[in-house]
């Protein structure tokens, strides 16, 4: 059997794939956090809850209306995005003139409320969501067996990240967003409806989290707490990457997911803390983060 550093190749590649999958979620979530933070100056603690909402909406759509995975992939982000926009319009928008810490505290309260509600209604236990038939089974790549759904998740997350990056860097809407991130008042004086832009941005970020949640549903179990522990890791990812750059958030997400996967191969005991350790090291060597522009 082929081995690498004394580890069977198949096991090694298997963990690498798991790392890549986790990295896909880290990347999508930290991307959303960075987009929201860039314009709103709010750290969206509810990002994990919105991710969970995405998965739950997909599950409930299936259970009650028989809506399949593919349609849920479109509907769930829309529902959660609208919910996010509503929250921004009615509550979050009142906090922009205050210390950004209040935004963090508010979204923390929001996350607790959402998670508490779902725990109350559906219990804490995880519920399975099956892989859509079209993507069940796997492909033998010769050197390893790749479950089709996992391949799909990696591909879709790459496309999503790239698409979001293009949207921000190459379109008119993205130019508004970038300009407003730099100087909100002037952009508004030019006749651009910045309050609307803020609502759309938060809604988009929430929708992105929900999209990731639907993608995650068949891999992890759907449970009210699936988002919170994840969001803390994503915060560490964001500290490592620095929130100054969209591309930085994406790259750091994948990198740390892979680093975590590899740790599982070589030193499993440390696998759930490795990202925090990396964060500490980065703080020592480069406090502003790997891609950070802000001090």
């Amino acid at each position: 059997m082929t081995t690498i550093f004394g580890i069977p190749l198949a096991a090694f590649l298997g963990q690498l794939l798991i790392g890549l999958i986790n990295g896909s979620f880290y990347a999508m979530l930290s991307l959303g956090l960075a987009v929201i933070f860039g314009l709103l100056r709010v750290i969206n603690f509810a990002h994990g809850a919105q991710y969970m909402l995405g998965a739950f909406v997909a599950l409930l759509l299936l259970q009650y209306l028989g809506v399949d995975y593919w349609l849920a992939l479109a509907i769930a982000p829309l529902v959660v995005g609208l919910f996010g926009a509503l929250v921004e319009r009615t509550m979050l928008s009142r906090l922009y003139d205050l210390d950004p810490l209040y935004g963090l505290l508010f979204t923390f309260g929001l996350a607790l409320t959402i998670e508490g509600t779902f725990r109350y209604l559906y219990g804490a236990a995880g519920q399975p969501y099956s892989v859509p038939p079209a993507l069940s089974g796997g492909t033998n790549l010769g050197f390893m067996f790749l479950p089709n759904y996992r391949g799909w998740v990696v591909a879709v997350s790459l496309v999503t990240c790239l698409g979001t990056w293009l949207l921000i860097e190459k379109t008119k809407l993205g130019a508004y967003l970038r300009a407003a991130t730099e100087n909100t008042v002037l952009v508004q004086a030019f006749g651009i409806n910045v309050p609307l832009l803020l609502t759309l941005t938060y809604g988009f970020g929430a929708a992105l989290a929900a999209f990731a949640g639907v993608l995650a549903a068949p891999i992890y179990q759907v449970s009210p707490l699936m988002g919170t522990n994840l969001i803390i890791v994503v915060f560490a990812v964001v500290v490592v990457g620095g929130m100054g750059s969209i591309l930085g958030a994406i790259v750091t997400g994948y990198m740390l997911g892979i680093a975590e996967g590899l740790t599982k191969v070589f030193y499993p005991e440390a696998s759930n803390i490795v990202i925090f350790v990396i964060m500490a090291i980065v703080l020592l060597l480069r406090p502003a983060g790997l891609f950070g522009k802000d001090a």
Binding site: K172, A175, Y176, R178, A179, T181, E182, N183, V187, F190, G191, I192
Partner: peptide, 13 residues
């Protein structure tokens, strides 16, 4: 705006 090109700046308003 530093994050916009000259043309993006020009066509922003």
């Amino acid at each position: 705006f530093a994050s916009l090109t000259v043309e993006e700046n020009l066509t922003l308003p």
